[in-house]
């Protein structure tokens, strides 16, 4: 809880300004609006935490503003603003299962999977002799998102991607 709203902690960093006590620099995302703010908490400042349950849900579809999920047990549907989910949504396939954080009957955000496996639908073939180590090329994946992949990846292959970083992590 921060200023009366529910926020998700995205990132924290210890900071000692050398003037007074140390601080915890935090990046917070408002789970109702998707807005992010940077806030510096004092060391030892207590924060009210919000109890959430994570429920396995199926990702159904998205429209221009929201993505929709369904609880696999109760069949109840939940909507989440795309601005709250962030770029992770671009790596998710409809019909896939994942965990969604819920508080007080309201979905707050998804718990992004560590890895997702996606098919490469478009990429140039690497030129022969191009052996610079670490060289990358662009590839379009089945969800429509484009990422950088190593030169040896071919069209039609399945690859593993970290959806939070939007980075290639290996061949499937």
């Amino acid at each position: 809880m921060h200023l009366g709203d529910i926020w998700q902690v995205q990132k924290t960093e210890f900071y000692s300004p050398g003037k007074g006590s140390a601080l915890m620099r935090s990046k917070l995302k408002n789970v109702s609006s998707g807005k992010t703010v940077d806030y510096n908490y004092k060391s030892n400042e207590s924060i009210e935490t919000v109890d959430v349950t994570s429920i396995e849900m199926q990702y159904l579809y998205k429209d221009a503003e929201n993505a929709f999920f369904m609880d696999n047990q109760s069949y109840q549907q939940y909507g989440l603003l795309l601005s709250v989910i962030g770029s992770v949504i671009e790596y998710l396939k409809e019909g896939e299962s994942m965990y969604v954080y819920v508080h007080d009957e309201k979905a707050l955000n998804i718990r992004p999977p560590v890895n997702v496996t996606l098919k490469v639908i478009q990429t140039e073939d690497a030129a022969r002799g191009d052996t610079v180590s670490g060289a990358k090329k662009e590839a379009e994946l089945e969800t429509g998102v484009k990422i950088m992949v190593p030169l040896f990846i071919k069209k039609g292959e399945d690859i593993v991607v970290n959806p939070e970083l939007g980075e290639y992590t290996g061949r499937a």
């Binding site: 200023l3 900071y15 300004p17 003037k19 007074g20 006590s21 601080l23 620099r25 806030y39 510096n40 908490y41 004092k42 030892n44 400042e45």
Partner: peptide, 23 residues
């Protein structure tokens, strides 16, 4: 301004506002 002040010193709060609004 909405800062938590209970149990904190002038220096602690000063430091927080400094990092939050000025630096």
């Amino acid at each position: 301004k909405g800062y938590v002040t209970d149990g904190f010193t002038y220096m602690d709060i000063w430091s927080q506002i400094y990092a939050q609004e000025i630096e």
